[in-house]
């Protein structure tokens, strides 16, 4: 089947098998390997990408379901063509909200629309937003701190 998608602002057109998962499509067809596959059944959230701005588990949908839609992966987060990081990425670095890094892209993409929609989240709201993503290395404390840091940075308009 033909699939035409916009990923991180770039249009891609491929012919794929109807049952090819979006996660495999991104990784193997488009070589966007920042999207990691953890549990293969939608529990861990490592493969989260944005579909038309909403977080989705790319292991649970087919590539063809994203036809003529917009996807954002972790590769699209930092300002293109620079060494700079997005404030959320900076916050994960500064608060040490990562260890092995495998779950990190999924956390970032879950959080991106959350922070945009909730500029002043409570700790409880942050925890709710994070509750669908698993990290096996950290105790989540620094991930929560990273979100708070990102929110504070955004508030200061940095």
């Amino acid at each position: 089947m033909n699939v035409c998608v916009t990923v991180n602002g770039k249009v891609y057109e491929r012919v794929v098998e109807p049952r090819l998962l979006l996660s495999d499509f991104l990784r193997h067809e488009l070589n966007l390997t920042g999207t990691h596959v953890g549990c293969e059944q939608g529990v861990c959230g490592a493969c989260t990408v944005l579909l038309n701005g909403d977080p989705v588990r790319s292991c649970l949908i087919f590539a063809v379901q994203a036809h003529e839609q917009e996807i954002m992966t972790v590769e699209g987060l930092a300002p293109a063509g620079t060494d700079k990081l997005h404030p959320l990425q900076e916050a994960f670095r500064d608060a040490h909200g990562l260890q092995c890094g495998f779950c990190t892209p999924g956390f970032l993409l879950t959080l991106l629309p959350f922070i945009e929609e909730n500029p002043n989240p409570t700790e409880q709201e942050i925890r709710e937003a994070l509750s669908g993503n698993l990290c096996r290395c950290t105790g989540y404390q620094n991930i929560v701190k990273a979100v708070k840091l990102a929110v504070e940075t955004a508030e200061r308009g940095e």
Partner: peptide, 22 residues
């Protein structure tokens, strides 16, 4: 000192085995 891989981890550029072009 921050985790040395923080930038590549958060940019999705850190390579695990099957991320390296085959």
């Amino acid at each position: 000192m921050k985790h040395i891989d923080a930038a590549t981890h958060t940019r999705g550029e850190s390579q695990y085995i099957d991320d390296v072009p085959q």
